[in-house]
Every structure is written in structure tokens, then in C-alpha cells.
Design a protein around this nucleic acid. Sequence first.
DNA 1: CGCCGTTTTGATAAAACTCAATCATCGTGG
DNA 2: CCACGATGATTGAGTTTTATCAAAACGGCG
Lengths: 237, 237
Amino acid sequence: MPKITGTGHCPSCPIRHLSIFADLRPERLANIPFRPLITRYKAGETIYQQGERADALFTVRGGVIKIIRSLPDGRNHLLYLETTGALIGWDSFLEEHYSQSAIAVADAEVCRLPERDLNRLRHADLELDNAILRRWITSLRRAEDRMVDLSTRKGNEKLAAFLLDWCATAPPGDWVDLPLTRGELGEMLGLTVETISRFLADWRKRGIISEEHRRIRIDDLPALQRVAAGGERRRNN
Amino acid sequence: MPKITGTGHCPSCPIRHLSIFADLRPERLANIPFRPLITRYKAGETIYQQGERADALFTVRGGVIKIIRSLPDGRNHLLYLETTGALIGWDSFLEEHYSQSAIAVADAEVCRLPERDLNRLRHADLELDNAILRRWITSLRRAEDRMVDLSTRKGNEKLAAFLLDWCATAPPGDWVDLPLTRGELGEMLGLTVETISRFLADWRKRGIISEEHRRIRIDDLPALQRVAAGGERRRNN
DNA sequence: CGCCGTTTTGATAAAACTCAATCATCGTGG
DNA sequence: CCACGATGATTGAGTTTTATCAAAACGGCG
């Protein structure tokens, strides 16, 4: 059960510098005419569900949230993994239904921004409008990058590239939480559980990565980069 | 060589009903403070190039334009095929560089909207802002749909689904221009030339489609829909 | 007519999936 | 505290799908 933990106060929000309100002038900030609900979700709980009426966006305050699209035949595709600072739920801007579901994969906390309020605010404040615009373009680019990756890279390259990206922020050689099952990795990269498992097992044996609990560590960065670049079995142009 | 054919006059534009100016009130329309350049491109010519400074969007007035991303290793991925009414060149809103190239695959005509002008206009007019917002979100959704297709469908399903989609507007059984090489189809769907060629040859032999010059006709719609749905070799959930 | 890019076709190999069985982990309830 | 069941992970064998390489056929166009 998600738990409402309070209402947000944007001016003093600890993650404001990561949010769309980062560049808002103080006087504007003070005038934000609503107090967004802050809700905590445990791993596995749903923030919003595909098909539901879409009337709010959410800023991710912490945790990890997967954005998935469910297909009629029961399969899923994992579109994005969102972490602290992300803005999710764009569909609300069309005042329609969510075309995706958002589900916490690690305990998460989100701040609920009603579309009406946010949209009003956007029209009143140029900086906010630009911040949203910027997010939207980067989301689109990210989606396009993913399309390219999905269609041009091989399985091992995709998985290696994802791990490199996921661990990129941490100091090299550090343990990094990776709260995803093999199945979820597969749903993200367009591969099956077994294929994912085999790649990871192979890399573990070769000392490229280590896994423990739900964490991962890259032990041989150059080797993994080589895999990501397609260096196993060379393609020439 | 692209040829500038004149400057557009939005209020009287023949494709205005398809453009972002469709819902603009007449008095607003009359006040559009610029006359966009209209340019004609022959098949193969480039509207804008990945890496170039991005300072303008384009409304497609006619023809077919492919939006591609080029990879360092020389391969391309065809992101979208745009036709009449589409708005392309979103990158300009970030005042950065185009992350894609736009190339005519059939003779095309576009209307150039400088980002500065368009953005100013957007802030002055709520309806225009909403029209653009609506396009944002649908672009993002379309990209997400493509991600799902690329990662969950098999080659024949992807190709069949594309043909169905491409021919959807024409009356069933009609010839439809399809100005794409097998290579381009492959770059769009993440398949090789040979694979595309084999599927099409197979469907031709089975009387599902016909091809002639650079046109295609769907002769057995249900059969093609069956293929697109994964009906060849049944998958049982 | 001859050239060049595209398409087709065949043979073979690589990549990934499917099916099946086993193992590991972890939380629950007796 | 331990046995049990459920979920996830691993591994193997066999198959399907797709890529790769190579060669021939086709089709416009100068």
C-alpha cells in the first residue's frame, strides 16, 4: 500500500535542484499555489497504471521506477528506468489516459503534480515552461537513442551498454544497486530471461563483473566497454 | 539542389488544416509576423543534417521525408517517415544541433519556421502552444510505440505491420507509393536488405501483395494482418 | 548498349528463442 | 527453527530466426 507521507513545499524541497523547478526564481517559487502530495511506494507497487485517466505528473524524489507498456498478449516492454529527479506521466498533458504504467522496482517516493496546476504554472512562468520543454526534448531523444540501440545492436552489446550506463555515475569498481530481475532486463532490451542470464554468467566467469544480492560491480571496465562496442567478433563497417 | 519556391502565407496555406496552425483563430492567423520560406527538395536531397546548428523547424507540405540517425560506424537507423502535415526539427527548441538528418525520399516541399519566431508565437498564443504540446506528446508516444515494436516483434511481423500502417489511409486494394529501398526498410525495422527482400518475395509468391515500380498493393489484407499479429507459427502466451 | 545501384536467391553461420530440468533464495506458517 | 512453496536464476539441448557472404539477375539512365 502506497503511503502518503505529507505535502511538498517546493521552495525547501531537497531535490528541487534536480526538478523542473530548479531554475525558478525565488519569488516565483514562493508563489507556487499548491502543495503537491508526497507518496511513498514499496518495490512492486504501482504509481499509475496504463489505461487510467491521466491527470497528474510525478517528480521522482527517490528510488527506482520502471515505466512499462503492456501488450494485449500479456507481454511487457520496459520503456524507461527512472530515478531521482525524473518527471513522469507526460500523458496527462493530453488529458487522456496513461499509455504506460509506472511501477516502483525499488522503494520509491514521488511528488504528485496535478496537470491542471502544472499547466497553469507553465503558462505563467517562462522558465518553468522552458524547463518542461527541455525535459520533453531530452525524453524524445532518449527514446530515439533507445530505438537505435534496439535495432542496431546485438544482445550482448545492448546489455553491456546498459550496465555501463547504469553504473556510470558511481565511482568505477563500486557496487551499484541493480534492482531488476533478469526478466525485467530482458523486457527492456528485447531479450529473453535465458539470454540475459547467459551473458551475465559468462561475464562473471570471465571476471568482467560481480553480482551479489541485488547489486552489481564492474570489475573490468575496458572489457565491458569492448563488448558494448561490438568488440567480440568484429564487424567491419 | 533544393529550390526556394516562394514564401508561405499561412492564412491561405492549402495544408494549414494539417499543420500546427490549424486551430488558430483567424485574427491571430492574420497577425503571424513572418512569411516562412517554402523550399522544394528532390528525392535524395537533405533538408537538414545531423550535427548542424538547429535553428528551424519544418512543416512538411508534401512528399515523403525520412528522419535518420547516423552512427559513428557508418550505419544508419531510420527513425521516422514523415509525410504531409508533419512538423520536424524539434531539436531547434534546445537551440542546439540536429540529432538527426532529414532527407527527402520522394520529391518534397517544406515550409521553414525559424525557431525564434515560432517560439515567440507559441508564447503569445495559447492555441498554438497547445497544438505544439499535443504534437510533442504524440511524437513521444510514437517513439515509444516504435521501441515496443522493435523489441517485441519478429521481422515478418514488423514488416507486415509497417506495410499495413503505410497503406492504411488508401482504400483497400489500391496501389500505394512506397518510395523506399529494401535497405531503407531494413534500416527502419532493424533488419538486413536480404531479410526484407525474402519476406516480400515470399508474400508476392503467396499473392498477399503486389509490387510494381515503386508502388505496392495489398491483395490479401487478412493474410497480411495475420502475419503482423504473429499468426504464422503461433505463439501461445 | 553498358554501367551502376538495387534486388533476388542460395548456402552457411551466428544469434537468440524455446522447452525442460535443476538449483538458489527467501519469506511464511506450522 | 525448519520445512515448504514460490519466485527467480541457471544450464543444456535443440530449433527458429536472422545475419553474412557470394553470386547472379534486374532495371533505369546516360
